[in-house]
Design a binder for these strands. Sequence first.
RNA 1: GGCAGGGUAGCUCAGGUGGUUAGAGCACGGCACUCAUAAUGCCGGGGUCGUGGGUUCGAGUCCCACCCCUGCUACCA
Length: 514
Amino acid sequence: MAGRFYVTTAIDYANGDPHIGHAYEKIGADVIARYRRLAGDDVHFLTGMDEHGQKVAQAAAERGIAPQAFVDDIAGRFQAMWKALDISYDQFIRTTDPAHKAGARALIKRIHDSSPDDFYERTYEGWYCVGCELFKRENEIADGKCVLHPTRELQWTEERNWFFRLSRYGDFLKRLFAERPDFLQPEARRNEMLGLLAEGAEDISITRSRLAWAIPFPIASSGGETQGTWVWFDALPNYLTATGYPDRSWRERWPADLHVIGKDITRLHAIVWPAMLQAAELPLPRRVWAHGFVNFAGERLSKSAGAKLDVAEAIARYGADALRYFLLREVPFDADGNFSWERFDERYTADLANALGNLASRSIAMVERYRGAIVPPGPRTALDDADAVDLAAYHAALDGSRGYLHHEALQAVWRMVARGNEYVDHQAPWKQARDPALAAALDETLASLMRQLARFAVLLQPFMPGKAAALWRQLGGPGDVAAQRFADLMALDATAWHVAKGDSLFPKERAATS
RNA sequence: GGCAGGGUAGCUCAGGUGGUUAGAGCACGGCACUCAUAAUGCCGGGGUCGUGGGUUCGAGUCCCACCCCUGCUACCA
């Protein structure tokens, strides 16, 4: 079980501020990273920024600043957001890092050396919009004009670019998908890619002649021009260059165990990226997980559509942990889901404050009141036995065997929480406390409850690291909850812990700030 | 257009190979309890299972048609 675990997120495109969709992915990946750490793995968690390309250059120009200054600012905003959300990344890569630029160029050269036939020059022609600085497709043209710039004339333009012979890798990719069914999950995304491959892979152009804000393509054109590298051919290698590539240390980390991405970029990660690595004769990542999207008010939160949902506002409502919980509970990690403030309030009140928060509150209060704040000893009970079943479901949802189903893991934990509340009512420790003859029974009840709460702290640590630590502290657990290991979970014993009921874990009053 | 997935209580969803009164959570109503953040527990109301046909002793579950939604359909990222 224990071993190295290298997990990555998509690197975010630096043409705007972080929104809830970016946050959702980082939180989901963070849960996986934290889960693996609790499983005992040596985790390396990579995230970062994709900073080249036309749109970045344009956005910078609109603000009248240099592209580098622009992306520096954006990268700072993203990092601040990840800090606010408690994202435990180990490394933050930026495609404008000199090391990345060198690494990406080295990879391209390696592809050229290993598979010289995979790069070739070809002339591309089409209608070019100077306003967009892009070739336009038919559906982007109305009345002979670009729909975005109807005052400008489209120009019939020819451009000679480098192409990557993706077509050569169709059979390789089909074999990859056949031999490694779990290479790409969930199933729906895999089926889409299989359908795509069945239609046949076409070569892709990987350089742009007008692209100045880019990594210079390391192979000069026949005309002597050095073109800019297509952003994806620059961005995808970040997972590899982050390991130090081409320095030989890269072998210590590569291949990645898991790429967590959004479903919209599945093709790039499940087809283009493996083909690039194969062309370079490098190992492929072990798995790609394509999560769904968070919809808001019935609308998709795309990067272009102006999202009205402010992440900072969502964090301020109940704190970062509550937002982390809500997103992962409400939006299945293998499909789309919705965000609504009403639902957020309902979930916070019902799940966090009433069910979990109150269970901790009432249980700890009784240990204080009846046993002087010292957890009494007690044998394993039916509560422990029943929880073991849900614990198995929790792991089955997160260990990768079925993919990464965060929502199912949380459902399993909340089945335990409900059981805890039922147990309290059934045992009625306040009655046991009134009868001295039931002292042993009361000990058993309280000990059982404290063990369960201790387990919750560990199981929820990946999802709500701050609240898990707070709960652990109230229970008087030793050391840091993040230092606990799943393997020891059912043997966890809270006897003699000194509890201290502090502030409510999940107060009903909305925090003014986080 | 093609391919794929889906339309089940107010909301979010479960419902292998067809079989007694269609389930869960949240929301809503009643009761109980008092340890607790007026929290919790128990009970309950609520659905012609997208539409119309068909197969069958019997279909949410199989077949056909239709309507609607979502994704993919390759070089913005």
